[in-house]
Nucleic acid binder design. Structure first.
Lengths: 237, 237
DNA sequence: TCAAAAGTGTTGGTTCTACACCCATGG
DNA sequence: CCATGGGTGTAGAACCAACACTTTTGA
């Protein structure tokens, strides 16, 4: 097999920005780095691309190893490449964004790995350019969630309308009228009303809803409008 | 300097999908590959990432070398990584999308390089996974252009409203009502009406317009609606 | 003089936002 | 029995899509 000559071969890392929502705050799943440099500092979950796998495979491998979870919503976000971004050795990093249901994660594993959920507004300092990655991921999430029902990936199987609304209000740091919000959300027909109620946050209790998976998939790419127009953010990057 | 051990170091390529619009058709700028394998086959403009540059720098370097153009609209799209995508040697490829004004390109160079504009619907076979890249780029362009005034990057300094409308109609393969279209476009205040007319495509002639750069930049990230709702495509990827 | 493309307003339907009160219940 | 959060309808404004005729002028 011929080879390209006189070209630079470098390391490719994969870093995962993992979002969760606990009912009132957005969270990021971070780990304490187990090796030098920056040992014990907090970082995104990451690893190196191996010779026989694609980036998607690598991202799934890494996420499974560190959280035990598979088949998550995950997509490639951006490749970071400043020559000095890793002081050890030239490395480019492909950032992936995953959205996961915190409850599922907590059932799956507890502290097998030194992973920890941090509130978005109480993040520790992160190594390398991981803070840049997080910023871009937040901005992309805000952009995308304004147009597509992507935040549903963060929800547990059963959730309430107030829970859903809190998720949008928190992401956009705004208040939304609950009558308008309910009407818009239900008009998509993506939600199925359950018979039971969540009584943990009020005496009256709020009905649970679940996702109608087939309608959800159909409509995933359609452009929605859950957020009032003037709250739509100023796009990605 | 310590190094990470036992990790795979691989080549990183940059490939550029370069869109143009000639007044009636979308075009892609392709080159005939000058080295084996697949010598003389058509391919996207590409090159390898060097040790001292970022991906953005590399993409600009490659584009300048091959077209002579600088300061183009260009953004990173996606990183392709199937292990066997390049039969010579494991290589990941970061695809960039550029939008350029064909007229500017034609002034700048002619055939210094074996580059050629192909109509989107008459593309030759491309090497490796370049056809996948083109498909993704088309789909992303359709998605993004439905929401942001990004197609303006394809226009010459002076253009007419029928020209602009043809650009949208061609991308979405649809007819748009010219009264509604004109009203929407002008209501953004991004266009400046010139005093002269383009008489090449009608006897009456159509007034030239140009971009109000500052308003364009302000509004680049706002969500527009030039395309009727039911023509908006089904999103990226 | 006529063919061919440019330019221009209105109306009806839909969608959006703003807004306030009653309901159910656990304590 | 009352405090707390859940649930629901309407009206006015804004926006959108559909629609047809007049203008200009080179050939």
């Amino acid at each position: 097999m011929n080879k390209y000559s006189n070209q630079t071969r470098i390391l490719t890392a994969i870093d995962c920005i993992i979002f969760g929502f606990d009912g009132s705050d957005y969270k990021l799943l971070l780990i304490q780095r187990g090796f030098a440099p920056e040992k014990e500092k907090w970082s995104l979950m990451g690893g190196f691309l191996q010779s026989d796998e694609s980036l998607d495979q690598a991202a799934n491998r890494i996420l499974k190893k560190l959280t035990g979870l598979e088949d998550l919503y995950m997509e490639q976000m951006h490749t970071f490449s400043k020559p000095d971004r890793d002081p050890v050795e030239r490395t480019i990093a492909v950032a992936y964004v995953a959205l996961i249901d915190i409850q599922k994660y907590e059932q799956q594993i507890s502290d097998k790995f030194q992973a920890h959920w941090f509130s978005m507004n109480e993040l520790p300092h992160l190594i390398f350019d991981h803070e840049d990655m997080v910023e871009m991921a937040k901005s992309r999430l805000r952009y995308k969630a304004a147009l597509h029902p992507i935040l549903f990936e963060l929800l547990p199987k059963k959730f309430t309308l107030p829970h859903l609304q809190a998720m949008y209000e928190s992401l956009y740091e705004t208040k939304i009228d609950k009558r308008n919000f309910t009407r818009k959300v239900l008009s998509t027909n993506m939600l199925i009303k359950e018979k039971d109620k969540d009584k943990t946050s009020s005496k009256k209790g709020a009905f649970y809803y679940s996702i109608d998976e087939s309608k959800y998939k159909d409509q995933f790419q359609t452009v929605l409008n859950f957020i009032p127009r003037n709250e739509i953010p100023t796009a990605n990057e």
